[in-house]
Design a protein around this nucleic acid. Sequence first.
DNA 1: CACCCGATTATCT
DNA 2: GATAATCGGGTGT
Length: 188
Amino acid sequence: MNYLIRSFFERDTVQVARELLGKVMVRRFGDAVCCARIVETESYTSDDPACHAFRGKTKRNASLFGPVGHAYVYLSYGLHWCLNVVARKPSMSAGGVLIRALEPMSGIEFFRNNRPWVKYSDLMNGPGKVTKALMIDRSYDGYDLIANNELTFMDSDIPNNYEVQTTTRIGINKAIDQPWRFLLIKSN
DNA sequence: CACCCGATTATCT
DNA sequence: GATAATCGGGTGT
């Protein structure tokens, strides 16, 4: 397995969101290497009213305008951190892919560290849960996910028994008809 | 500077 | 399936 390179993220944001399905999120806690498959993403770009960057650059969303392959981390509902990876073609001013859900593969005991009581199936099946399990907070906003190995992506093929689903995005009230949400579902 | 509300989750029933 | 929790940005006074 190889790490994803920066040019992977320097393409159309929707395409990156789709192709990120099945890739592996790698999280290192000290010497421990923990992996989780990406199973749900959403695309947000600066020409999209639902995107934080739609109304221009602010202190909060500045990372979305920064180099691709870096993280954009923001607080949702005053409670939860959400992890995005900056991705866009060069002609687009800002854009990112929201990592909405992961499926734990290895190092699960580390992912459970914060919340040992949660069911396996509730561990990373939501954007706020993803950041809890990965122990991501505001300090990772702007973090380079390509140049570092504490948190990064590995290339991987989608296993045979999974299928890709495309739906409209959820939890938003603007541009709600765009099919920019991508899921990986076990088909057996 | 006050007010409003959201790319959600946990914890009830 | 309803609702409380909780806070920083955006917007407009």
